[in-house]
Design a protein around this nucleic acid. Structure first.
Ligand SMILES: [Mn+2]
Ligand SMILES: [Mn+2]
Ligand SMILES: [Zn+2]
Ligand SMILES: [Zn+2]
Lengths: 143, 143
DNA sequence: TCATTACTGGTAATGGTTTCCATTACAGAA
DNA sequence: TTCTGTAATGGAAACCATTACCAGTAATGA
């Protein structure tokens, strides 16, 4: 009675495994930079994988909610996603030309935000820290 | 010949002084938190000040371009504006409930972003650093 | 006062994201 | 394997904040 031992697949009865879900995740995994839902959708369609745009949005949101994917808004306001290597909290250094992305970590910044917030009496704090610039290659290419 | 001594008003021949421009700036000055263009427009209309939504957007953008106003996107993606006290580069600690905003400065963070970017070969770097949380009052109110 | 032209603002167009909802197809039960 | 309940799908329509148009208005300098 009770919980089947081989409950490995997916805990309890959560998201079903579908062709589309796998496709979205795979598409994201194939890209190393941040990409938009529309870009991913176009990429999938281009390779003949039938997936609705709505579904792409849904899976991306689910991945974000489960902390498996990072999101950020580019300076020009579009939402982009990325399947990051490290699971722990981190930030990004992004080339505004080619999109090349480097995951960065900063103990000092973490301590700083916490200290500042506490000093002002704020609790339940979260922060966004993103760095944009021109990577070496792009800088050379346009010199 | 030459430049009139009393060129105080507005340097050279740049933006004209209009009722609407003053209204938008005044409306922003009356608010201490970050507000959206739509909110400002509604506030102005509510007080009987006739200003078109398009014009509100235009003036906000102009104020942003001339560094007189700060912009940021809330976690839920809406663009909000604020007339800050200090002109120098700084960041914000914002209450996600009441919008109360504290201007913060962080030499360490500035140095950190610069150092990281340089180490990775990035140039022409800019960064976004915003801290969101629940302020003391709001924390008490919902305890 | 007059002419020049930047500014204004209503309306239409954009464009990314979400909502609807009828259809499809996982996955556990029989 | 087949049956079934229901989560997932996806095309179309709705949303909605922001922008583009452009004819009318008004600030400015002569
Ligand atoms: Mn951090
Ligand atoms: Mn800074
Ligand atoms: Zn680059
Ligand atoms: Zn508050």
């Amino acid at each position: 009675m009770g919980i089947p031992a081989a409950a490995a697949g997916r805990p309890a009865g959560l998201p079903r495994v579908t062709r589309q879900g796998a496709a979205v995740r795979a598409a994201l995994a194939s890209r190393t930079e941040f990409v938009s839902a529309q870009e991913l959708h176009a990429q999938l369609r281009g390779k003949g994988v039938g997936v609705g745009l709505t579904t792409v949005y849904r899976h991306l949101q689910a991945l974000v909610d489960s902390k498996q994917v990072d999101v950020l808004q580019t300076p020009d306001g579009q939402t982009v996603y990325r399947l990051c290597a490290r699971e722990e909290h981190h930030h990004h250094l992004v080339c505004r030309h080619c999109g090349r992305t480097v995951e960065i970590e900063g103990r000092e910044v973490e301590r700083w935000t916490y200290r500042i917030a506490e000093a002002e009496g704020f609790v339940d704090v979260e922060h966004t820290v993103e760095v944009f610039g021109t990577c070496g290659e792009c800088a050379a290419r346009r010199s």
